[in-house]
Simulated scan of single mutants.
Amino acid sequence: MSSAPSRSSQDAVGNSLGIAVDRIIAAIEQVAASNPVVLIDGRSGAGKTSLARALVARWPLRGRVQLVALDSIYPGWDGLDDGVELARELILTPHAKGFVGVWQRWDWTVGEPAEAHAVDPSLPLIVEGSGALTPTTARLADVRVWLESPTASRKERALARDGETYRPHWDRWARQEQRHVTRDDPMSLASLVFPVP
């Protein structure tokens, strides 16, 4: 018996994310701003990255949209909270104030900051990653998304994606996600909540 996800389970996830994109697009259009901010949160393997990429591909406004993945910012395997704080300080707050934000990519191989990236405040912005929705960041976003997915499904997808690199750190990261969920209650901060099988 294969351990690979079945086609029907992949289709179910794809269908759920497709519905989510449709509803997020409608919410973005209702904001009626040229540079809306979308935050996408959920535990590891919930589908945040897939959803963000699908949203970029179908972005409803003219011009380009900027996408920042918190995976590029977290400073290591114990860095969920620090990564979210960096995103708030260096990306979301400057964007809200009309200033250019500058953040550094975290190089997971060498364990230190790498090249810098700029965020244009005149352009729309999507920030996706575990921990993205907090009481502080929620105030800086126009559309706030939470993805809810069962642990077994999430773990299967996450480990299929990142393989043996992630496996030894799954529990360590899950504890940080649980701390975030308990402390920040991101589902209650979301303007849109989507179940993902």
Rank of each mutant, 00 (worst) to 15 (best):
H169G: 06
W59C: 01
A69I: 08
A12C: 08
G18P: 07
A190D: 13
Q66M: 10
S3F: 13
G83F: 00
Q10Y: 09
S130E: 08
T136M: 13
S191W: 13
R167L: 14
D120I: 00
I73C: 05
A114N: 09
A158K: 05
G63P: 00
A26F: 05
L51F: 01
I73Q: 04
A158F: 09
P135T: 12
P113K: 09
A132M: 08
E148C: 01
P36N: 10
E156T: 13
P186V: 03
P121V: 02
S50D: 10
P168I: 02
V84D: 05
D120L: 02
L192S: 12
W108G: 00
T136K: 11
Q178T: 13
S8N: 12
V31Q: 15
R161Q: 00
D171Y: 04
A141C: 07
L80E: 03
L90N: 14
S130H: 06
L67Q: 09
W173I: 03
I28A: 10
W59F: 12
G18H: 12
V100G: 05
K48L: 07
T137N: 06
P150C: 03
K48N: 04
S44G: 15
V181R: 08
E164C: 03
L90E: 15
V196D: 07
A57W: 04
R53S: 10
H95P: 05
A114Q: 12
S130W: 09
D107E: 05
P121I: 01
A26E: 13
W170I: 04
S9R: 11
A158C: 06
N15Y: 13
G83Y: 01
T137W: 07
T49N: 05
G163P: 00
V21S: 07
A116I: 01
T137A: 05
P168Q: 02
L125K: 02
G45N: 09
D82G: 08
G79E: 03
G45H: 11
K97T: 09
S149G: 02
D78P: 01
A174F: 14
W170H: 03
G111I: 01
L61W: 00
A27K: 15
R175K: 14
E112S: 14
V13L: 11
H180Y: 00
L125Q: 03
R144E: 04
G101M: 02
A20G: 07
L140E: 02
V13D: 15
R64Y: 12
W77F: 02
D185I: 00
K155E: 13
A26D: 14
A141K: 05
V127G: 04
R167V: 10
V119N: 04
G131I: 04
V193Q: 12
T151E: 13
A160H: 06
L90H: 12
R139V: 11
S72L: 14
S72I: 08
D120T: 04
N15E: 10
A20Y: 10
S9T: 14
I126G: 04
V145Y: 02
D82K: 14
P197S: 14
E85S: 14
T134M: 11
F194W: 14
A158D: 03
Y166P: 02
A118I: 06
A27P: 08
T137V: 10
A158L: 06
K155W: 08
G18D: 15
H180E: 01
H117A: 11
L39D: 00
V102F: 08
Q178E: 15
R64L: 15
H180S: 00
S191Y: 09
L67A: 11
P113H: 12
I19C: 11
D71H: 10
V119F: 00
S34H: 15
L192M: 08
S188K: 14
S2L: 11
